[in-house]
Design a protein around this nucleic acid. Sequence first.
DNA 1: CCATACATTAATGCATGCATTGTAAAATAC
DNA 2: GTATTTTACAATGCATGCATTAATGTATGG
Lengths: 217, 217
Amino acid sequence: MSNTLRALGKLREMIFAGDLPAGSNHLETELAMQLNMSRTPVREALLMLEGQGLLKLQPRKGVRILPISPSDMADIYDVLTELESLSAERAATAGHPPSALAPLEAAIDDMDKAIAAGDLDAWSEADDRFHKELVRLGGNGRVQAIVDMMSDQVRRARAITLALRPLPTKSNEDHRKVFQAIRDGHGDVAGQTHRAHRRHAKEIIVDVLEKHRLRFI
Amino acid sequence: MSNTLRALGKLREMIFAGDLPAGSNHLETELAMQLNMSRTPVREALLMLEGQGLLKLQPRKGVRILPISPSDMADIYDVLTELESLSAERAATAGHPPSALAPLEAAIDDMDKAIAAGDLDAWSEADDRFHKELVRLGGNGRVQAIVDMMSDQVRRARAITLALRPLPTKSNEDHRKVFQAIRDGHGDVAGQTHRAHRRHAKEIIVDVLEKHRLRFI
DNA sequence: CCATACATTAATGCATGCATTGTAAAATAC
DNA sequence: GTATTTTACAATGCATGCATTAATGTATGG
């Protein structure tokens, strides 16, 4: 495995773990020291991460880890809403055999269990799985790539927002409705239900972020 | 201006101009020679272009310019459809002053003129302008970035498809309907009209690509 | 004659060093 | 004391060179 890829992974971890907090600046040389390699592979990794919107290379000022404002989060949620809803619609009309939908249902079941147990981490993991599986079933590779990228950004915010908002006990009813629509081949229903669900979730998240003045995440 | 950015621009031009045809492979060293700079900035530009989905770095085989299959084009159109329709909806409810909508209407007028004159290039340019302006009015920066990226890929295909399909004389009626809905603040109408318009356009393009067996673009 | 193993070649991954340039600090003038 | 100019420093952009490694061709054995 190449050093560039190692640097890419490590830097992502460091960003998500908060070792490189949003808004902070870091010099290429320092990062290379920390990662124990030369500047070249680090620089290459940084260019990729810049393309993914996680940071910005600012000559002579170091790389700036980009903060996510409530308005950014609203933009991201809007993109996710549309692309996931499209995926739900396509998943419903793609003619997937019932067995292909099992992972989706499993994710919903796991969310129910996590809610019953009050386990935020488990819920969060199962929710990720649900959305990822939904998009996979949609069958559009570009949608998957975009959603993956945006989900990364949301994940940075969720660690904070999860603790600040009520456990989403009701949201799983929506997930189940979407699942049933997909299973029954009702594309329009699947898409519209998911869109409504997501637009509602967006309101809640953005509200939380604004109330707590969480400008930096 | 940095060599990396120059390389980025030049390589893009070369791809769109067909100097680097889809499916072809090129060595870093050769590209560096052609661009009259060292491998480092070329390599950095190539990494960015890889992130944008225009090519793939294949160790020991050179960079491969990615072809776009009809199925790829279908995927891209689906993404554009959803994100542009969202933009139309948001543009309608954003409370833009009428003056802000002038460029949009101008683009539509120019398309009418181009159709009347049978000028394919002028129509293509005005159509680009319409879509770009629509997304700008939608006010979501991430949507703009994604649409820009995907539009690049469509542009590679259009040079071919434009000559193969009938002049889209009817499509401008749809554009005008979308414009009116935005002007009148009817978000739902704007979004749904644009979505229907785009889904129709997708069918035509994908049909053309498949009929002509245009696997590589 | 075919398959497998080895050798050769060349492209890439990466380290390193240097020139450029932006920034900040210091000094000078007002 | 403040503002402006100059100077010095240091981070980056990029060229270069080397080691690694994969692909191709060759040779040998079955």
